[in-house]
């Protein structure tokens, strides 16, 4: 039996990852990087689910992660399609230059 990592360590790690993701969305200006930061947020949540599932001895959390991964994959597919459509009309990846709509 190996020594187990305490639940709190997982929770702190996933909270840190989540905060890094949020900061990335708020600070970075490149659309693709913002997109990756959002994925980081979702994966931080996945880590939380798996950690809780392990410590609560329930399978629910593990199954939820599969759902979340499917949703994230669909989101990436649609997101990249939208970014390509945008790139065809405007040669920019910077959100500050995507500013037709405001007021």
């Amino acid at each position: 039996m190996t020594a187990t990592v305490p639940l709190n360590a997982y929770l702190i790690l996933s909270a840190a990852l989540f905060v890094i993701g949020v900061a990335g969305v708020l600070i970075r200006r490149n659309v693709l990087v913002i997109f990756m930061a959002i994925e980081l947020m979702l994966n931080a949540v996945n880590l939380t689910f798996v950690a809780f599932a392990r410590f609560l001895h329930s399978m629910d959390g593990q199954i939820i992660v599969l759902f979340v991964m499917a949703v994230a994959a669909a989101e990436v597919a649609i997101g990249l399609a939208i970014i390509i459509a945008l790139h065809r009309n405007k040669e920019s990846m910077n959100v500050d230059e995507i500013n037709l709509l405001k007021g």
Binding site: V22, I34, F35, V95
Partner: peptide, 26 residues
């Protein structure tokens, strides 16, 4: 371009919000 931009903004902020929602569920 307006439609592209609208979709991109909706996607980024919608996915951002989903992240919070999901963390709440977790």
């Amino acid at each position: 371009l307006r439609s592209n931009e609208s979709a991109l903004k909706y996607l980024l902020l919608g996915a951002f919000a989903s992240g919070f929602f999901l963390y709440g569920i977790a």
